[in-house]
Design a protein around this nucleic acid. Structure first.
Length: 184
DNA sequence: CCCTGATTCGC
DNA sequence: GCGAATCAGG
């Protein structure tokens, strides 16, 4: 991918809007957040309006560089695409299309309550790959959130919500307990 | 751990 | 010029 005028324009715009480098990278596609940050600096538009980093930090036009030595071959990426390397470079990590609705069935109340405990109540913007996409509330409302609890990589839901969502259709009817409210 | 931006420097 | 690797910080 190259920095076409269009891509640069979008970058400038989003950066000005305050989006993070990784968010911009995801929107652009084909680049990592490092690439975005690098470009931002080259364009000379770093340092967004940011509440002064508390006094001293300001003056640190510091040299404390890194002793990096790349030398040999690249670390043979296990995945052909961009991946997550610790806190490093992650490009276009597409969060799977969040499903607006997942119709919960009758579920033991305590299961639902346990689920509530792990709900982070995150917005769609805060939703990440390994976060539970269980919807909370009305998707048409601003208050709509996703559970956001930890989900196993590749799983849509956290363990509690998975227990609810994937409940076998059978043993639903038997043991009657207080029906859980469906809002959670 | 998740993430953020900043910096260096081999390419 | 580009961006991975790394740092420093939340």
């Amino acid at each position: 991918m190259q920095w076409t005028d269009e891509r640069v324009e979008l970058l400038k715009k989003r950066w000005a809007e305050g989006l993070s480098a990784s968010q911009i990278a995801a929107e652009l596609g084909g680049v990592t957040r490092n690439a975005v940050i690098g470009k931002v600096h080259r364009l000379g538009l770093s340092g967004r309006a940011k509440a002064a980093p508390s006094g001293v930090a300001r003056l640190r036009a510091k040299p404390a560089a890194a002793p990096r030595r790349v030398a040999t071959a690249a670390p043979a990426p296990s995945q052909p695409s961009y991946g997550v390397r610790g806190n490093v470079a992650l490009a276009a990590a597409p969060v799977a299309a969040p499903r607006p609705i997942a119709a919960p069935r009758l579920v033991p109340l305590e299961v639902v309550e346990n689920a509530s405990l792990v709900c982070e109540r995150v917005t769609i913007m805060e939703l990440r790959e390994n976060m539970c996409r269980w919807p909370l509330g009305d998707p048409s409302q601003a208050e709509f959130r996703f559970c956001g609890g930890r989900s196993s990589p590749g799983d849509a839901y956290c363990s509690h919500h998975a227990a609810i969502a994937y409940q076998p259709a059978h043993d639903r009817r038997r043991d009657r307990r207080p029906a859980a409210a469906l809002t959670h």
